[in-house]
Amino acid sequence: MNKYDSAESQINGIINHLLQLITKLLETKSGLCIAVSGGKSPIGLFDKLSQQDIDWKRITITLVDERFIAIDNQDSNENLVKTHLLQNKAREARFIGLSNTNMAIDSVVDHLNANMPEIDIAILGMGEDGHTASIFPCCNELEAASDLSTTKRYIITNPTTANYQRIGLNMSALIKIPHLVLSINGNKKLEVLEKALKVQNKQPPIGLLLSNRPDTKIFWSE
């Protein structure tokens, strides 16, 4: 785990890691797909990442998860990414969203499972309840979302402790992504994370993820 004494130094650490990783991968691949998380925490990272000298024309940005709402809603992860990441030099990147309220949610998920490209890098966050992506400990879909044998990558979840119906990657899909980055802030989340590292079952979801992917690069700041 990489620990920092400020959010700024944490962001710099993540940026340096991503730049090295992306540069290396683009030496052998024609393009990359990077999935990012929403919420307020990644805004500083997105703003700085958008200014980096990356071959953005070869980068596709998508989301780890999304609320099933209109993309112009202030709570939309797509809206957040377009406002803070797909700016500056990153304007040249391609973007694929997850939400389309003109369709039934089941049809949207079917479309994503049939058409989404493979993801090379995922930048994940974690809630104080140990959820990651939209796999919440409280959701009725927890068992299905945590099923490591499923071949479908996207799932609908209905968390009881958060607003909106969600679409996101399930645990099976997350652990198959070649390169995982986890960004967390605050002592409360650090405590949750350290406890989760000792748990061998599905609670909380971040514990299941890290037990299957101990190579996840973790970046924490106070």
Results as ranks from 00 to 15, higher is better:
residue 90 A to T: 08
residue 82 K to C: 02
residue 85 L to T: 06
residue 213 R to S: 07
residue 206 I to L: 05
residue 215 D to E: 15
residue 210 L to I: 12
residue 92 E to F: 11
residue 191 E to L: 02
residue 36 V to H: 10
residue 169 L to I: 04
residue 30 S to N: 15
residue 118 E to P: 01
residue 27 E to Y: 04
residue 98 L to C: 04
residue 92 E to N: 13
residue 52 Q to Y: 01
residue 147 D to M: 10
residue 2 N to H: 15
residue 156 I to P: 12
residue 78 E to F: 03
residue 30 S to G: 15
residue 134 S to Y: 01
residue 97 G to L: 01
residue 2 N to L: 09
residue 164 Y to M: 03
residue 103 M to S: 13
residue 217 K to C: 05
residue 77 N to F: 08
residue 192 V to S: 01
residue 90 A to K: 09
residue 186 G to K: 06
residue 9 S to F: 12
residue 193 L to A: 04
residue 218 I to K: 06
residue 204 P to E: 13
residue 203 Q to E: 13
residue 61 I to A: 05
residue 79 N to W: 00
residue 177 I to D: 11
residue 102 N to H: 12
residue 116 M to A: 04
residue 140 N to C: 02
residue 148 L to F: 07
residue 13 G to C: 11
residue 143 E to V: 14
residue 110 D to G: 00
residue 166 R to F: 07
residue 112 L to D: 10
residue 87 Q to D: 05
residue 53 D to L: 10
residue 63 L to E: 01
residue 149 S to T: 14
residue 96 I to S: 03
residue 155 I to W: 12
residue 51 Q to C: 13
residue 167 I to N: 11
residue 34 I to F: 02
residue 196 A to V: 05
residue 14 I to C: 08
residue 88 N to E: 15
residue 117 P to Q: 05
residue 104 A to V: 10
residue 46 F to M: 02
residue 44 G to H: 00
residue 135 I to R: 11
residue 197 L to C: 10
residue 163 N to W: 01
residue 159 P to G: 13
residue 19 L to H: 05
residue 140 N to P: 08
residue 201 N to S: 14
residue 1 M to S: 14
residue 75 D to H: 14
residue 122 A to F: 00
residue 25 L to G: 04
residue 13 G to A: 11
residue 28 T to A: 11
residue 173 A to Q: 10
residue 1 M to I: 13
residue 29 K to P: 03
residue 97 G to N: 01
residue 155 I to Q: 11
residue 182 L to H: 09
residue 26 L to I: 08
residue 37 S to G: 00
residue 161 T to D: 15
residue 182 L to P: 06
residue 220 W to V: 11
residue 221 S to A: 15
residue 136 F to D: 06
residue 124 L to G: 01
residue 1 M to P: 10
residue 113 N to Y: 10
residue 198 K to P: 00
residue 62 T to Q: 04
residue 92 E to M: 12
residue 182 L to T: 11
residue 85 L to C: 04
residue 113 N to K: 01
residue 177 I to C: 08
residue 80 L to N: 14
residue 153 R to K: 15
residue 220 W to S: 08
residue 49 L to K: 03
residue 207 G to V: 07
residue 121 I to F: 07
residue 23 T to R: 14
residue 163 N to K: 15
residue 33 C to I: 09
residue 64 V to H: 01
residue 71 I to E: 13
residue 101 T to W: 00
residue 46 F to L: 00
residue 162 A to C: 12
residue 53 D to G: 04
residue 121 I to M: 03
residue 48 K to D: 10
residue 124 L to R: 02
residue 80 L to P: 02
residue 77 N to S: 08
residue 191 E to R: 00
residue 149 S to R: 11
residue 196 A to S: 12
residue 92 E to T: 08
residue 101 T to D: 04
residue 80 L to F: 07
residue 195 K to S: 02
residue 10 Q to T: 04
residue 36 V to N: 05
residue 188 K to I: 14
residue 30 S to V: 05
residue 48 K to R: 14
residue 182 L to F: 09
